[in-house]
Write a protein that binds this DNA or RNA. Structure first.
Length: 261
DNA sequence: AATAAGTACAACCGCGGAGGG
DNA sequence: ACCCTCCGCGGTTGTACTTAT
């Protein structure tokens, strides 16, 4: 019966690409229904049998993809929440583009969804990253100046807060020196970038509650993250520490954690 | 209002690993 | 050991929709 319905509604007038028997392009609601019925009856898997058993003119790959990314009942709909975004960032720092691995930590989200989210929200900034290194350094320096001023003001206002730890942030040359010791095999340029990112991450983490006059903190944070993207492999993987029994990763940019950690 | 640029997301493709014959 | 099929993964493309100019 389902085959009859299918053949009635899947005429060539639909305008979709047909290639040697297999349909391509967007799925129709009827195709979805057939696939859902198939999974109800036979369970997930054996995707190449779908066409034979349902009359659906989709190949196994297409059926699996449609089910996994769109039809599965346990999928979470709606926008990625800020919390999920943080998780994605942290896990990407640890795993790189292993989207399926990242997706396992986000129930209801698919690898495809996370991959798309990453690309549209973050990846686009990479192309500008090399140009931004110098600009970011200037911003970093400016931010450090700003933070020091803020800290001085805070000191004056509230003597009970001990901010010595925050003020002990390493300078850029210090960070580079530490990286040279820790990762002597990296090139000078890599160490330069690594030290820079480390430094900027630290500064971002301390300035999170402060407002900065001329530019958005968020913009700066993302810009700096992009500078990191190309050398995660040299840095984050080596230095991200996690307990094997705890699947939640933590961003700890340096082996020698700064005082405020 | 028109259109170019940007964004979001569904879907396809190629590749490689696993497993069975 | 080899071949074949199936499956899953990551990269990429296509397109509808939104926003900016």
């Amino acid at each position: 019966m389902v085959c009859e319905i299918f053949s009635e509604q899947m005429g060539s007038s639909w305008g979709f690409i047909e290639e040697i028997g297999w349909r391509k392009g967007p799925w129709t609601s009827d195709e979805d229904r057939l696939l859902i019925e198939y999974v109800k009856l036979h369970g997930e898997g054996r995707w190449n049998s779908v066409a034979r058993l349902t009359g659906l003119r989709r190949n196994g790959k297409s059926c699996r993809l449609r089910w996994v990314n769109y039809l599965r009942p346990d999928l979470k709909r709606g926008q990625i929440t800020p919390h999920e975004e943080r998780i994605i960032l942290e896990l990407h720092a640890r795993w790189g583009n292993r989207w399926s691995t990242i997706a396992r930590s986000l129930p209801g989200r698919t690898d495809n969804e996370i991959k798309n989210y990453w690309r549209t929200h973050f990846k686009k900034k990479i192309k500008n990253s090399s140009d931004n290194v110098e600009k970011s350094r200037a911003r970093l320096w400016k931010r450090q100046q700003f933070q020091q001023q803020q800290q001085q003001i805070n000191n004056q206002i509230n003597n009970q807060i001990d901010i010595k730890k925050v003020m002990s942030l390493p300078t850029m040359p210090q960070a580079k020196q530490e990286m040279t010791i820790l990762y002597p095999n990296n090139t000078i340029d890599q160490q330069d970038q690594v030290g820079f990112f480390y430094s900027s991450m630290l500064n971002n983490s301390t300035s999170i509650s402060q407002s900065e006059p001329s530019s958005s903190n968020e913009d700066i944070m993302w810009d700096d993250l992009w500078n990191l993207d190309d050398f995660y492999g040299h840095f984050m993987i080596n230095t991200t520490t996690y307990n094997k029994t705890n699947t939640t990763p933590c961003l700890q940019p340096m082996a020698t954690t700064p005082a405020f950690y």
